[in-house]
Amino acid sequence: MAILDLANPTRFLALSARLLPWLAAACVIAFAVGLYMTFFVAPDDYQQGATVKIMYLHVPAAWLAMMCYSVMAISSLGTLIWKHPLADVSAKAAAPIGAAFTLISLITGSLWGKPMWGTYWVWDARLTSVLVLFIMYLGLIALWRTIEDPIRAGKAAAVLTLVGAINLPIIKFSVDWWNTLHQPASVIRMDGPTIHPTILWPLLVMALAFTLLFFVMHLMAMRNEILRRRLRTMQLQAASARVGVATPQAAE
């Protein structure tokens, strides 16, 4: 029932307006706690020193980069199967956010790599997969921006998103395979075999904070998208009304 209720954009706008302040407050609190734990509680890694603090940004960003794609894939199913009117709004709103988190994950990854590996970029399996994901996000955004009609753009992007969802595991697998082929296994792994609780807890809190941040931004972007579509309908209506008025005058 909840999903059906949300199918009405106006009702969705009202509900999200009520929900947003709470989510934003939770997000701020989670970030405050997470950052405090990161800088004052979490110990330095015996091997990586203080650079382990980069992990508290890098890992949640990478996690969100993937979660955002899952949100888009589920929304695409909603567009194609259930024809849910908000599904393509959700998918479109999620794409730039996903691209931003993927970018953060790439930049922090390479900034972490410089002190650890001695170079900003290593064609490591994970970094490479994330780079491919970034290109896919940008491609999807480009597709949305090139097709003018929002309904048609939503359907096209939904098809591409789902094909991507099928392909991402294949890409991940092939990149892993390619990586083991080309690189000795002596690279320092980003995560050890076991994560100590003193590191795990701040990481989980930061992951929660980032997830909340995603939902706040996603809801805001969805509201924008609904307004954009409203504006578009009104503009089309105004234009057709103008034509409707102009034609009889021309006939006279």
């Binding site: 603090k53 980069i54 940004l57 960003a61 972490w112």
Partner: peptide
Amino acid sequence: FIIACYVVT
């Protein structure tokens, strides 16, 4: 590097 990461984010 650490500060740069937080600033970039």
